[in-house]
Each structure stands twice: as C-alpha cells, then as structure tokens.
C-alpha cells in the first residue's frame, strides 16, 4: 500500500465533500434533525404537556418492561413523566440516532465511489498506478472519517440538548447513559464502517449513484425494526444487547473486508463501471 497515494485520495475525497453542496447539506441537516430537533420535541413536550395522558394506556406495557429492565439499577426516573422521557431518551432515541451514521456514511460513500464513475473520473484512477487495494482502503477511510465525525458531533449536540432541557425535569445530568456510551463508542463506528463497506461493495457492482443508494437503503430496515420493536414494547435494547449487536456487525465487517479485498481485479472493476 502506498501511503502517499492514500493521503492524496483521502484529501481529495474530503475536499470533494466540502465542495459538493448537496452532500454538505445532507451531512449538516441529518445531525440537526436527529440530535437537535427530535430531543427538543421530546423533552419540550414533556415540559409543556402531560405526556402520560397524551400517550394513553398503550404506553403502560412499554413502561412496565422499562421498569423491569432498569428498576433495580437506576432510580433516576421516578414519576411516570420522567420514566417516559427517560425511556425515549435512552432506548428509542439511540435507535433513531443510528440513522445519523447510516445516512451520512451512505451518501458520502456512494458519492466517493459511484460518484467517481458517474463523473468519469474513476477511469483516471484506474489508469493510474494506484493499486485497487490502496484505492479501496483510501475510499473507505475517506468515507469513514467524515461520517464518524458527524456522529460524534451529533452525539455532543444531542447531549447538550438532553442535559440542557432535561435538567428541568430530572434536576440532574442524565446524558450520557450506559446505552449512549456503548452506542457512540461501539455500535456507531461499527455501523458507519458497515455502511461504508457495504456501499463500496455494492458500488463496485452497480453503475449509478441512484442504484447504490437504493440498495444500501436496505441497511435502514434493521434500525426501523429496532425502533418499532422497542416502541411497541416487544423488547428493549440495553447495553448488553448493543454490545452484542456491535460484535455481530464487527464480524460482518470483517467478512465484508475479506470479500472486498478479493475484488482486486482492475479490469473487472473497470468493465463493470464503464461498460
């Protein structure tokens, strides 16, 4: 692997993100929605309205499960209102938050690879002495860095909103809980890497940015499942489950990496992209 080439490709890709307005807009808007708008609506509603009445009886099933899960561990949520907000902040919101690395990594990675094909610049890269391995690794790093950075910034913003608004309700700092810590340190980087690798894998086989985006949209389905499952009171994803999911995704990432390194035939890649 040639470090000089890697550095050049990563620098070029990062500059490309900064200069592509549509891409930059996406990676600015997504964190605002998930880390500012959603927590503000949630905690703001708890402060302004009677959440317990508003949510109705269906909420009880979820709360019972929640109390079973955390009852012996934490005493932070005592009133039903606090319990509802605590449940949303620590169980539903982290699942929603996962969409930040997924959406960001998805658009950045698709732009980085299929985007090069659509702009007919991949041809220049394949005609250069860059090895396919160096190209893939550079593209992975160049997509991972901004996506993970956006997740971390979103995490910080989210924390500021939750603690800033939530303090009035809980009278103490409630963020980050164990769920959020494993989310940002384990699950989020793993999901980011998986999205990038999956995109790279798909991109090497499809011809257009649109196709890559459509196929990679499938990644969102398990997250939707997690949100729906928890919201309907079927299960709650706590620290242990988050760690287990992270380990499973790590395994998947290793498999993907192994598959991608086998795609090292320049001519296969070129013919798939050009013809």
């Amino acid at each position: 692997m040639n470090k000089r080439m890697m550095k050049a490709i990563i620098k070029k890709d990062l500059r490309d993100i900064y200069r592509t307005k549509s891409l930059l807009t996406t990676i600015i808007i997504i964190p605002i929605i998930f880390s500012i708008v959603f927590p503000t609506i949630l905690i703001g509603s708890a402060l302004l309205f009677d959440l317990e009445k508003a949510m109705g009886a269906d909420m009880q099933k979820m709360l019972d499960m929640f109390l079973n899960e955390i009852g012996t561990k934490q005493r932070i949520a005592e009133t039903p209102e606090q319990q509802i907000v605590y449940l949303f902040i620590n169980y539903i919101l982290p699942s929603l938050f996962l969409l930040v690395p997924i959406i960001t990594a998805s658009v950045v990675a698709a732009n980085s690879f299929v985007g090069e094909k659509e702009r007919r610049t991949l041809e220049s890269l394949l005609f250069s002495p860059v090895s396919i391995k160096t190209l893939f690794i550079s593209k992975t790093v160049a997509s991972f860095i901004p996506s993970f950075l956006v997740s971390v910034i979103s995490f910080i913003l989210c924390g500021l909103i939750i603690n800033g608004l939530g303090y009035q309700l809980f009278q103490e700092i409630i963020f980050p809980s164990g769920n959020w810590i494993v989310l940002i340190t384990c699950l989020s980087p793993m999901v980011t890497l998986m999205t990038v690798l999956l995109n790279l894998f798909i991109s090497s086989r499809v011809k257009t940015y649109q196709e890559a985006q459509n196929i990679s949209g499938i990644i969102i389905l398990p997250v939707i499942g997690m949100i729906a499952g928890q919201a309907s009171g079927l299960f709650l994803v706590g620290v242990e489950i988050t760690l287990m999911i992270s380990a499973a995704i790590l395994l998947l990432n290793l498999i993907l990496l192994q598959r991608i390194t086998k795609l090292n035939d320049r001519h296969v890649l070129f013919e798939k992209q050009i013809h």
């Binding site: 070029k12 490309d16 592509t20 702009r119 220049s124 250069s128 002495p129």
Partner: peptide, 25 residues
C-alpha cells in the same frame, strides 16, 4: 489522455495536477 479527459470538475486545474502528481509519484 482519454476522450472524457477524466478530470475533477469541482477542483481547480492546479489542484487536479497536484492530485495526479501525488498518484504518479
């Protein structure tokens, strides 16, 4: 030199040459 030229349109001429200079060592 290919027919499509294969240049990065959002980068300046100088940045294009600097990038390819790195790739070609």
């Amino acid at each position: 030199v290919t027919e499509s030229a294969g240049l990065y349109h959002q980068m300046s001429g100088l940045e294009n040459l600097e990038f390819f200079a790195e790739l070609y060592g």
